[in-house]
Design a protein around this nucleic acid. Sequence first.
DNA 1: ACATTAATTGTGT
DNA 2: ACACAATTAATGT
Length: 209
Amino acid sequence: MLTDKFSFIFEKELIEEICLSGKLGNFSAADVLIDLGQRIEYIPLILSGSIKIMTEDKEGNELLLYYLELGDTCAVTLNCCSKASNSTIRATCETDCQLVFIPAEKLEEWMVSYKSWRNFILQSYHERLGEMLNAVDVLAFDNMEERLYKYLKNKVLVNGNPDLQVTHLEIANDLHSSRVVISRLMKKLELDGKIRQHRNRIEFLEMIS
DNA sequence: ACATTAATTGTGT
DNA sequence: ACACAATTAATGT
């Protein structure tokens, strides 16, 4: 079953190895996979669903970094792993999801023995770095309304569903903002016809695929 | 079906 | 940012 999802990127020998040493895990939405300060022992590979990666500052304000989806692995975790340090992030399930955990020591082992693995790791670093630069850009230069709009759009994409189950407060935490600000901007977006809101639920109109 | 309560959202200062 | 008002959902009776 791993084969159908990864045969395009890994050779069969490597897939067999993954089956041998990887642990399969099923989680449901809102489960916390890794919390701040936890020791990293496994590298996750996403089979289905999506995962939200965030940091937190000392005041307890959260900031959304990015989402992981099918075929992704977490670049920050890779980094923590090779340095044998603790997690600087928190990972929670955005939706129900299924993943494979790969023991950290296999990381280096496979880096040497499998070309496709090495490429995969480098590729994820590359993609993630690009995304992060973009995120920093948006953070630094875009106004809140723009950030909020992009946040919602991205969430719809990740969820594959234009009905979002979130409260204004949750959004505010993700965006490192306050609830009141979000409420006001949401009102604006609703009046602009980009969104329709109900309690605990937001419909994203104008879906582009 | 109704009343109570808790949580979410709206608004004025 | 804060306080409070209004609205809605959840729960028990």
